[in-house]
C-alpha cells in the first residue's frame, strides 16, 4: 500500500487559501470545489485531491502546515482513506470542479 494526500475539508473550507493547489508538482491533482465546504455549513469551498494522480510527495502538507499554517492535509494509506476523489469522477464547471467521492481501492 502507499500514501496519498488527504485534505480535511472541514479545516480547508474555513479559509479557502488555495495555496497547496499552486504548489503540487503534479497537474490536475489538487482540485478545488466551490461548494464542498459550504454544503457542510462552512464559509468557503475546499481543495481536494484526485488520489489516482497523487505521487505521495507530501509537498502540499509542508505548504499547508508551514506557509498557509492551516494543517489541513495528512498523508494516509490509500486503502485506509475512505471515499475520496478520483479523476474519472471529477467534472469541471464554471470556475469550479466537482468530485463524486468513491472508494479508491474498489473504485465505487
Amino acid at each position: 500500500m502507499y500514501l496519498v494526500a488527504n485534505i480535511d475539508a472541514g479545516i480547508c473550507a474555513a479559509t479557502s487559501c488555495k495555496l497547496c493547489t499552486q504548489y503540487c508538482p503534479e497537474a490536475n491533482t489538487i482540485l478545488y470545489d466551490n461548494e464542498m465546504g459550504r454544503e457542510q455549513g462552512l464559509k468557503y469551498g475546499s481543495a481536494y485531491v484526485a488520489v489516482d494522480r497523487c505521487k505521495g510527495c507530501a509537498q502540499c502538507v509542508w505548504v499547508c502546515d508551514n506557509m498557509a499554517k492551516h494543517n489541513a492535509i495528512k498523508m494516509e494509506m490509500i486503502d485506509q482513506i475512505g471515499d475520496t476523489a478520483l479523476t474519472e469522477n471529477v467534472t469541471y464547471g464554471e470556475k469550479t470542479s466537482r468530485a463524486v467521492l468513491a472508494n479508491p481501492v474498489r473504485g465505487q
Partner: peptide, 8 residues
C-alpha cells in the same frame, strides 16, 4: 490563482 478549477 485559478488552478484547481480548470483542466491543465
Amino acid at each position: 490563482s485559478q488552478v484547481g478549477t480548470f483542466k491543465e
